[in-house]
C-alpha cells in the first residue's frame, strides 16, 4: 500500500511537470490578452519538429536546440500576432477564437504537406535512461528532465513578471487594461510581447516533448485540450494557479489509472468531470480572479 502511494506520488509529479509545460504558455497569453489561442498546440508541434530536424540532420541535442527553438518561437509568435490577431483585437472575442482556430488548421496542414503524417521522435540517450527508486518504482530520466525544466520555466517566468519592468507592465495589462493604458503602457505592444513569449514557451515545450511523445502533425490538439482544462482548473490569469491545475489533473488521472480497473480509460473522463465540479464550486478556477464575464 505504501509502495502504491509512493508510486502514485512519483508518477503524478512527473506527469504534472509535463502538463505544466503544456499549459504555461497558453496561460500567459490568455492572462494578458484574454485570447484563447487555439493554435497553441500546433505551435508546440512546430517546436517538436524543429528540435527533431536539428537532432536528425545537425545532431544537436533537443535540450541544446531548445534555446534556438524558443527564440524562433518568440519571433514566430510575435509576427503571427502582428499579422493577424492585432488587427481584430476589437472584434468580438469569438472572432478571435475562429481566427486562431483557422491558424491552427493552416499550421497543421502545412505540417502534413511538408512532413506527412508519419510519427517521429528524437532519441537522445537520456530519453532511454532511468533509475530504480525501489524494487518496482522507476523514474524515467527524460520525464525528470521535463519536470526540472518545468520548474525552471515557471520560476523564471514568475521572476520576470515580478521584478522586470516589462514583466510588471505585463501584469498591469493583465489586471486592468484601461488603467494600464492610462499609465502610459502600450497595451498592444504588451499583447504582442506576451504572445511572442507564450509561443516561445510553446516551442520550447515542443522541443522537450520531442523525446517524450511521438511527433505528428496531429499532436497539437490533444495538448491544447489538456492545457485548456488545466488553465481553467487553476484560474485563467494565474501562473501559479496553472501549476496547481497541472498537478491536480496529473494526480487525479494517475490515481484513477492506478486504483480503478480499466482506470486509464476513464481517467480523462473523470478529469473533465473534476473540471466541471471545480467550475461549479468556484467558477473562477482555483486561483483565478477573472470576472464572470471573461
Amino acid at each position: 500500500m505504501a509502495s502504491l502511494i509512493f508510486q502514485i506520488v512519483v508518477d503524478s509529479l512527473l506527469l504534472g511537470g509535463v502538463y505544466t509545460l503544456m499549459a504555461v504558455g497558453l496561460s500567459l497569453a490568455f492572462g494578458v490578452t484574454r485570447i484563447i489561442n487555439f493554435a497553441h498546440g500546433d505551435i508546440v508541434m512546430y517546436g517538436a519538429y524543429a528540435a527533431f530536424f536539428a537532432f536528425v540532420s545537425l545532431n544537436i541535442d533537443p535540450l541544446l536546440s531548445l534555446l534556438f527553438v524558443a527564440i524562433l518561437g518568440a519571433i514566430g509568435g510575435y509576427l503571427l500576432f502582428k499579422l493577424t490577431l492585432d488587427r481584430i483585437l476589437d472584434a468580438p472575442g469569438i472572432n478571435q477564437v475562429l481566427l486562431t482556430f483557422g491558424l491552427g488548421l493552416v499550421l497543421q496542414n502545412v505540417a502534413v504537406i511538408l512532413w506527412t503524417g508519419d510519427e517521429r521522435s528524437t532519441t537522445p540517450s537520456y530519453a532511454f535512461d532511468s533509475w530504480f527508486l525501489s524494487d518496482d518504482i522507476v523514474v524515467a530520466k527524460g520525464r525528470l528532465i521535463a519536470f526540472g525544466l518545468a520548474v525552471a520555466f515557471v520560476v523564471l517566468l514568475l521572476a520576470w513578471l515580478r521584478w522586470s519592468e516589462l514583466g510588471r507592465a505585463t501584469r498591469a495589462v493583465s489586471q486592468n487594461r484601461a488603467a494600464a493604458s492610462l499609465m502610459g503602457i502600450n497595451v498592444r505592444a504588451m499583447y504582442a510581447l506576451s504572445f511572442g513569449l507564450s509561443s516561445s514557451f510553446g516551442t520550447a515545450t515542443g522541443a522537450i516533448m520531442s523525446f517524450l511523445l511521438p511527433i505528428t502533425p496531429f499532436m497539437g490538439f490533444p495538448i491544447l485540450v489538456k492545457a485548456f482544462a488545466i488553465i481553467i482548473l487553476g484560474g485563467l490569469d494565474s501562473i501559479v494557479g496553472t501549476v496547481i491545475g497541472a498537478f491536480l489533473l496529473a494526480t487525479a488521472e494517475t490515481t484513477i489509472a492506478y486504483v480503478v480497473p480499466q482506470g486509464i480509460g476513464w481517467a480523462e473522463g473523470v478529469a473533465f468531470f473534476l473540471l466541471v465540479i471545480v467550475l461549479i464550486v468556484r467558477p473562477t478556477g482555483i486561483l483565478g480572479t477573472v470576472g464572470r464575464d471573461a
Binding site: D11, L15, V18, K226, T254, I264, G265, A267, E268
Partner: peptide, 11 residues
Amino acid sequence: LVRAGATDLNP
C-alpha cells in the same frame, strides 16, 4: 486497457 494517445502508460 490503455487510452489511445495517453501521455503516460506507467500505471
